[in-house]
């Protein structure tokens, strides 16, 4: 990135973080929603099987992904409601820079939620774990969040211009994120199981990295066509 693009990127990201700091709408809603879904899983699934350790990863990532839909849905909402979008789009900002700032903001919001929700979910579902496992899971979070952030920025930018925005986004986003849920859930289970399944963990993480790279390229190739009207 050249210096002016870096400055634009930092400005857009700072703007998103400032708006979130002031209103705290997105992170609080995502966090509460994720917790509610976690508890929902506990009473519908967890109660019925004795040892929930084996399914913890799947539950955690299904929950977090559903919560992420809320956060992704908030993308571009201030711009739309306060009619700033035109002012941003008419500024000489490369669309790729907008996309990267958006993705970064989403990743940071998701991490903000996960710092609270993931440890709680582990306490709920898993019978004792080690600090090393938590570090491994943090790695999964970062990788999966990048995947969700890229896909989220890409698809939310389309849904924001649509008539039925809130309806379109989950239908658009969730099928595309199923591979991420599968791999992130698998990696989390591999990290939580005793003994840890490192080969499996690495495989899943590699899958997430490949997913992120592929869709970053797709986003790079198509983003101009989404945000330009």
């Amino acid at each position: 990135m050249n210096p002016s693009a870096r400055r634009q990127y930092a400005a857009l990201l700072r703007k998103d973080l400032r708006l979130e700091y002031r209103t705290r709408e997105t992170i609080v809603a995502m966090g509460l929603f994720s917790l509610v879904v976690t508890i929902l899983f506990e009473f519908t699934v967890g109660e019925r099987i004795g040892n929930t350790s084996a399914i913890a990863g799947g539950i955690i990532w299904a929950t977090l992904t559903l919560g992420a839909v809320l956060g992704v849905g908030r993308t571009w909402v201030p711009e739309r409601e306060q009619r700033v979008l035109d002012a941003i789009l008419i500024a000489p900002v490369p669309r790729l820079v907008m996309m990267m700032a958006r993705t970064t903001a989403l990743v940071l919001f998701l991490l903000g939620v996960q710092v609270v929700v993931v440890p709680l979910a582990i306490v709920f579902f898993v019978n004792g774990t080690s600090p090393a496992s938590l570090v491994l899971i943090a790695g999964v979070c970062i990788l999966a969040d990048v995947c969700i952030g890229i896909m989220g920025a890409l698809l939310s930018s389309m849904s924001v211009f649509s008539r039925t925005r809130e309806l379109v986004l989950p239908v658009l986003l969730l099928p595309s994120l199923i591979p991420v849920v599968i791999a992130a859930g698998g990696a989390t289970d591999a990290a939580l199981s005793a003994p840890r399944q490192m080969a499996e963990y690495r495989g899943y993480c590699l899958f997430l990295a490949v997913y992120a790279v592929i869709f970053a390229l797709v986003a790079y190739a198509t983003f101009d066509y989404i945000l330009d009207d």
């Binding site: 389309m158 849904s159 797709v218």
Partner: peptide
């Protein structure tokens, strides 16, 4: 779902982008 909620020339453009994303998925 995407197609029915977008309009005009944008409908075609978004549909094209989604056709690419879906095929790679």
């Amino acid at each position: 779902v995407l197609r029915s909620s977008a309009e005009g020339e944008r409908q075609a453009r978004f549909s094209a982008v989604y056709a690419i994303i879906a095929f790679i998925s």
